[in-house]
Simulated scan of single mutants.
Amino acid sequence: MNGILGTALAAQSPLLVDGAMATELEKRGVDTANALWSAMALIRDPQAVHDVHRSYFEAGANIAITNTYQANIPGFERIGLTDDEARRLITVAVDEAVAARDDYRSSVPAPAMENTSDDRRSRPLLVAGSVGPYGAFLADGSEYTGGYSLTDAEYRDFHRERMRVLADAGVDLFAFETMPNMAEVQALVGLLNDEFSDMEAWMSFSLRDAGHLCDGTALDEATAALDRVPGISAIGVNCVPLELVGDAIGCIRSATSKPIIVYPNNGDIYHPGTKTWTPNPSGLSLAQLAPRWIDAGASILGGCCRTTPADIRELAAVCHGPSVRTQTGGRETLS
């Protein structure tokens, strides 16, 4: 597989995505109880965004997802900011992720730079520009239902400028994430093909159940449609319950040979109507389930809502410790 993700996977597999941004911002005193959610930190405390990204790199993540899931130009304009101010804040989100990566790499003490056991300079580290669904802009929980409808042109108009700012600011690829609506997925693919052909993206769905997007589209059919798109470099699911992931991987693998990405919630159950959570009833964790997901075909793993650097650190220990799959010379081996 070619492209940025393919090169990274040739160097290390599985790749690890970071975890929740809002959960960590709240610990740092940032109020996320608003229509902008975690994007409010770009206005009030961008250093906190930097610190969260850095904490995930320290925990072992390969990929930082920018704090732009809810950061779109119409959303910023809705609270009274200008177009220029909105673009600047999206750029800030990328700058903080890139700076955190650079700071992490440069923090290796000089003697350790020659120590091959310290992987800060050799481990692939990417910045993915988060492109959340139109439902996130609505801020009514519809990213979990797909219950909205725009024309293809309207979807493109909504996403285009954020994607342009992300690309210009220097993200390595796009993260089309928590996508519940197949019409929106198709519009994003069209936009990628027609106007961002020099970029690649992963597409990550939000699910109703292990076999269907939130809008009812069959997961294998949605995957098959993306399998033919050169710019889509990985396909998967995120912001879903842990118990859906294994079957979803099987469904995706039946329709594509592309890398599969999964980054579910921590097992707590979200209630969109009240914006509250019920604690994880299963007691299972990302680290406990990761070996099953890797065996099923996933090669990019991480966490979404309510996951923490501690979760990613445990995931890294399982995925990159003794007796786990690693890449050596482009071949998958056991080490």
Rank of each mutant, 00 (worst) to 15 (best):
D247R: 03
Y263H: 00
L242F: 04
E243L: 08
A248M: 00
C239N: 09
C251N: 08
L244Q: 12
S233P: 03
I249T: 01
I261S: 15
I261W: 15
V237Y: 09
N265D: 04
E243N: 10
I260R: 09
I235V: 11
L244E: 12
L244S: 11
C239L: 09
V237P: 04
S233G: 10
K258H: 14
A234I: 07
V245G: 03
S254Y: 10
P264L: 15
I249Y: 03
T256K: 12
I260K: 06
N266D: 07
N266E: 05
P259Q: 08
C251A: 12
V245D: 00
S233V: 12
N265Q: 05
R253S: 06
D247N: 03
R253M: 02
R253Y: 09
D247T: 04
T256I: 11
P264G: 13
G267P: 00
A255N: 11
P264R: 14
P259A: 08
P264I: 15
I260Q: 04
P259W: 05
Y263T: 03
T256P: 10
V240F: 08
V245Y: 00
G246N: 04
A234C: 01
P241C: 05
N238Y: 10
G250K: 08
Y263L: 01
I249G: 01
C239G: 07
R253I: 02
N266V: 03
N266T: 03
C239E: 02
L244G: 09
